[in-house]
């Protein structure tokens, strides 16, 4: 195993950079973080629509979430990779289509988590803000959201873990992330698949396990400090 790491270590970590595109583990992490950051505001919008008073908006958001949850991520990736460039008429790099697909998918799930966070706040928060005469925007953004988001920090970290795992699907459409890099190594070194995929599995394991431990720690510390429900997973 060590010899594989020695020979291909750089490829696995950062891809073909600087002679080619960035790839490998670095790419996986970049894709994951970028996806999470772009998802974040979209998910907040969905969450606000789901917990708000505007009925049509609520139903729209609800419909969006239900539809996205009914489709496998892989299909969304196919749509983004094959269909989207045709629709807008210009070619899109595979990496961006992966990010787009993950963002759409996770907007639904993260949106549900944030909505849970908002609903888990004590009712008194909303009432106190209304009694003070605050309008919708200040109430939401200065009082409800900060608390809700703090409570769902474990949930957000958990979704990051999920996104890292989902980025592996990029290997199916040749996005140069970690799994794809490993597939390339495997076609080179045909005789050592167990070691190669063992390393791949181990890498994801270390990454995700560390994050899930962090989620646990965060959950405990936040539970102690805040009122309202602390959300870790998307409620079914």
């Amino acid at each position: 195993m060590l010899d594989i790491l020695q020979e291909y270590g750089v490829l696995l970590l950062i891809g073909e950079y600087p002679h080619g595109k960035l790839g490998g583990l670095a790419m996986t992490l970049i894709i994951s973080f970028v996806s999470l950051i772009v998802t974040f505001p979209c998910a907040i919008l969905i969450a606000l629509a789901r917990t708000g008073k505007n009925k049509p908006l609520k139903r729209l958001a609800s419909g969006f979430v239900h539809c996205v949850r009914a489709i496998p991520l892989l299909m969304l990736i196919f749509w983004a990779y094959f269909a989207l460039p045709v629709v807008i008429g210009i070619p899109i790099d595979a990496t961006y289509t992966l990010i787009i697909a993950i963002v759409i998918y996770q907007t639904a799930y993260l949106g549900e988590i944030i909505a849970s966070g908002i609903e888990g706040l004590p009712k008194g928060q909303m009432e106190a803000a209304e009694a003070l005469g605050l309008g919708y925007i200040p109430t939401t953004f200065r009082i409800l959201l900060p608390q809700a988001l703090f409570n769902v920090i474990p949930g957000i970290v958990n979704q990051l873990t999920t996104i890292i795992k989902e980025s592996s699907l990029g290997s199916i459409i040749a996005v140069p992330e970690l799994s794809y890099a490993m597939l390339q190594v495997n076609s080179n070194e045909v005789t050592k698949p167990l070691q190669i995929f063992g390393i791949l599995a181990a890498t994801y394991f270390v990454l995700c396990f560390a994050l899930s431990q962090a989620t646990g720690v965060l959950e405990r510390r936040i539970s102690n400090r805040r009122t309202g429900r602390v959300v870790v997973e998307a409620v079914a």
Binding site: S168, L169, S179, P193
Partner: peptide, 23 residues
């Protein structure tokens, strides 16, 4: 349990399809 929760499903498929076949 921890292995299956922290490794992407696709990779688990790879491990079986590519890796186990060697055994």
């Amino acid at each position: 349990v921890e292995y299956h929760r922290n490794v992407p499903i696709l990779i688990q498929l790879f491990v079986w399809y590519f890796g186990f076949a060697v055994v």
